[in-house]
Computed example of a mutant assay.
Amino acid sequence: MLRRKLTQGLTLGLALGAGLIGAPALAQTAYPTKPVTLMVGFPPGGQTDFAARVLTNSLAANLGQGVVIENKAGVNGNLGSADIMRSAPDGYRMLVGNGSMTVTPHVFPNLGIVDPTKFVPVGILLQSPLVLVVPAASPVKDFAQFAALVKERAKAGKGVDYGTPGAGSLVHVTTELMRERLGGPAMNHVPYKGSAPAVIDLMAGRIEAMFDATSVFDPYIKSGKVRPILVTSSSRVASMPDVPTPAEVGLKDFEIISFIGMYGPPGTRPEVVQKLNAAINTVLKEPAVIRSFQERGDQPGGGTPEQLDAMTRAQYKLWGDVVKANKIHAE
């Protein structure tokens, strides 16, 4: 009888032990059990929206659940960022944010803009240089002519009108930094709610120039609706090999690379971050995804959450210094 009780106790103990050992594994494999929403703080059509949509189907297949895009435009992406900052840290509402996150808090210091370093980094989706374009009908044929036009207009008391996806965006501070590199001639900033409406006005000639990611302008460059005159990378971009770099046109310290990453709200569980990061890295190795990015001048991201965190913090400091030095404020 005693032996039977000991045997039963040992069997029960082993079963309980196996259950306890398996519990963490079950908890990890349980995510996700429902669709995952990716928040994009910009309208459809921009680079951030493009990056999210290129990955959606493959991420869904990898995760075994649907992946839904939600666009919430406003305050240069901050409405979407604030939404995710308030979301439950369960991995079902995630942010797809771009480099503008590292700029906006410095440009709007009194509006309670979300601090990007407070998010939980998951992974880099893509990296891309910016490209400066003018309308196809513009008399400007290259960057030298553009620089001359900017200075000439400033002397005449009427600056060149340049568009951006929003005040405080990466495009905004990049253009202001270029203006400073040209000696500080006056230019007129025309902010929009996202890249798409700005591009429409650019092609119509209602604004005269605009920086944005290569992927935003690629189809319009190929169709001849806009003319590229500068890329912000240290080497020329394969999809537009005739467009010069900053060093080639005499702009010093002007190599700028934008990035798009996935973030979770504060407190997002490590196992969720690990699952999503692994899915991102797997998807970014798919030939079709790589081709979609590279055909438009972007490069697939990947890597660790720590690499996204380091990039976010470095650019947050960089643009804080630039905003302060150039007195850029957009209250």
Rank of each mutant, 00 (worst) to 15 (best):
T117P: 02
A82F: 05
Q65A: 15
F50C: 07
A52L: 04
I124W: 02
T104P: 00
Q127E: 15
V103A: 08
I84V: 15
L126T: 12
H106A: 09
P89H: 06
F143S: 03
D49H: 12
G123A: 15
P116K: 04
N71A: 09
D142Q: 07
P121V: 13
N57G: 14
N62W: 02
L63S: 07
F119S: 02
V114H: 00
A148W: 07
V68L: 12
G77D: 03
F143V: 04
K118S: 11
L125T: 09
V140H: 01
P89A: 07
V122R: 00
A148R: 12
V133I: 10
H106Y: 12
F119P: 01
K118Y: 02
F146R: 05
H106G: 04
T56R: 14
T56N: 07
I113T: 11
L95M: 11
M101E: 11
I69H: 01
F143Y: 14
L95F: 10
L149E: 15
A137H: 14
T56G: 05
Q127V: 14
V107R: 01
R93T: 15
L111H: 12
V107W: 02
S81F: 07
D142F: 07
G64K: 05
A82Y: 02
A82T: 08
D142C: 10
H106K: 12
M94F: 05
G66I: 13
L149R: 15
V134D: 01
D83K: 05
E70W: 02
Q127G: 12
F146N: 06
L63C: 07
S128E: 15
A88V: 14
V96C: 00
A147Q: 11
L59R: 07
K141G: 13
N62E: 15
V131Q: 02
M101P: 00
A147D: 11
G99H: 00
G77L: 04
S58C: 08
K141Q: 15
P135M: 11
A61M: 12
D115H: 05
V140T: 13
D142G: 07
P121F: 10
T102P: 01
N98E: 14
Y92S: 07
G99V: 03
I124C: 05
L111I: 08
S87I: 04
V114D: 00
L95T: 05
N71T: 09
T104W: 08
S138C: 12
D142A: 06
D90L: 03
P116T: 09
G99R: 01
A52C: 11
N57W: 08
S100P: 02
G91L: 04
A60K: 06
N78R: 11
A137G: 15
P89R: 06
G74P: 04
V134Q: 02
A73L: 04
D142H: 07
V134K: 01
T117Y: 03
N57S: 15
A88W: 06
D90V: 09
V120Q: 06
V131A: 08
M85E: 11
N62V: 09
L126C: 12
V134N: 01
F146Q: 06
M101S: 10
V68E: 14
S87W: 01
A147T: 05
G112Y: 06
L111K: 13
F146H: 06
N62H: 11
L125Y: 03
L149A: 13
P135H: 13
N62G: 05
Q65K: 10
L126F: 14
